[in-house]
Design a protein around this nucleic acid. Structure first.
Lengths: 164, 164
DNA sequence: GAATAATGATTGCATATTGCAAGTAATTCT
DNA sequence: AGAATTACTTGCAATATGCAATCATTATTC
């Protein structure tokens, strides 16, 4: 019988949501950014000129959310839409000067929050955690791709998740 | 500069959300449960007779969400409200027979999903992960309690999180 | 080289979900 | 008893989300 509070996904969820809430309480009133806008901004910061589709992929958001997030960023003056190099269907977004300032400020807090978390873990453990999370990330992607129907049977004898 | 995809809270978030989505895709259409209703159900299953307030605490939901979740569970015939033993302000919820059946079915899938995840981690690593997550959970609670204002300074020389 | 299909992105609208003020009911305090 | 407190609920406005329909651009087919 399930015990929610010791269920791995729920434990991961709780930790991440608390931190995300704290970060959100900082940037939402200060800059008027929604959660998706912040996520989009941080993806664009790492991949200047990314298209909406690329952002979907990287940020784990659907195309509608990204479209609206981009609009929000543009309206707030934090990003520019550069309407494709060769193919004008692609959006191609990049941060404005002001966008970089805002990103850097939020980024800074994100870093401090991360440090507060990782402070309670030794660097050795942190390396192990990193490796474990990489595998869990892959495994979770597999679970998502197969859906709940794919989890009905016992442990598969051969490994079905061969990609990546 | 922040790299979202390697930011610990985001990595935890992605893993947990994927699993939660898969589970949700199972129980939502099948039983008409919302996410909060499912969380509430699983808390009540572990603590029969819990009050709404206790559920808030344990499920990480606010009082409104819990109130609505309880109503939903009662309307669906999955739970009963037992209106307090001595103090009739308290709600005191417990699952119905049908509620137990439903919980057990969802619980079962949750267990399989958990197993699919933990399959990629050795039992030794799992024990380490458990210990790390306990500490991260505490640390995140501290971060949340202090808010973003509490994260402005450099690393504190003495440990501020002395509780628990 | 038009007609057709496909792709990337956006918009509108219906439907949750959430946040918060106000409200009810039961209990405690003075 | 009357005021204050506690536990929970409700209503309503603001947000977010899901999805069909749409537009613009590029690819493909005949």
């Amino acid at each position: 019988m399930l015990h929610l509070e010791s269920w791995l996904p729920y434990r991961l969820f709780r930790i991440s949501v608390r931190i995300a809430d704290v970060l959100n309480a900082f940037y939402a009133p200060r800059f008027g950014l929604s959660r998706s806008a912040w996520r989009t901004m941080s993806i664009v910061a790492n991949r200047p000129g990314a298209s909406a589709k690329e952002i979907c992929q990287a940020a784990g958001l659907d195309q509608f959310a990204v479209s609206r997030a981009i609009r929000q960023l543009v309206e707030l003056g934090f990003a520019r839409r550069l309407s494709g190099r060769t193919d004008r269907r692609y959006a191609s977004i990049e941060l404005s000067k002001r966008g970089w300032e805002v990103f850097s400020e939020i980024s800074d807090l994100a870093g401090r929050l991360d440090r507060e978390l990782t402070e309670v873990v030794s660097s050795d453990e942190l390396a192990r955690l990193d490796s474990i999370l990489n595998r869990l990330d892959n495994a979770s992607a597999g679970v998502l791709a197969r859906g709940w129907q794919g989890a009905r049977e016992g442990p598969g004898p051969e490994g079905p998740e061969t990609e990546e």
